[in-house]
Amino acid sequence: MVALPLHHYLIVGAILFALGLIGFLARRNLIIMFLCVEMMLQGVSINLAAFARYRGNLQGQAFILFIVTVAACEAAIALALILMLYRRQHSLDVSKWQELREPGEEATEDTEPLPPAPREPPLPHLTPAGVEPEHQPEESHV
């Protein structure tokens, strides 16, 4: 029986890394950008685990544990930052923060308007079914 060659795992890691890069550059939601960075880390982790397996050595796995540690720290800080940014602008859009760009850079503007949100179907209008009967207020003897 032949084992899977090493480069199969490396290809999967490379694809996840590239997808994460695209997501980080293209998306504008702060949280999705963060998740894309985490996906890039996952791609790197697959590489490290594969090298550890094909070298018979645990050092790669130890590296992944440190990646997980750093990712946890990063998640805590990113969550705090995102909460702070959301409180200031009431939106998760990164482009709201584009006054932080370098001097001399053009501001990006969204030219194409968003299509109007589909209107929700109106609630059915119910006719009152009848007169509410009078009833005695409940008494309790607790």
Binding site: L25, A26, R28, N29, S95
Partner: peptide, 18 residues
């Protein structure tokens, strides 16, 4: 819909780079 979720920055250039 919102700016954050329903727009992307430079979809063509980003895809090419990735």
């Amino acid at each position: 819909l919102s700016d954050a979720d329903d727009r992307s920055r430079e979809p063509l250039l980003t895809t090419l780079a990735g």
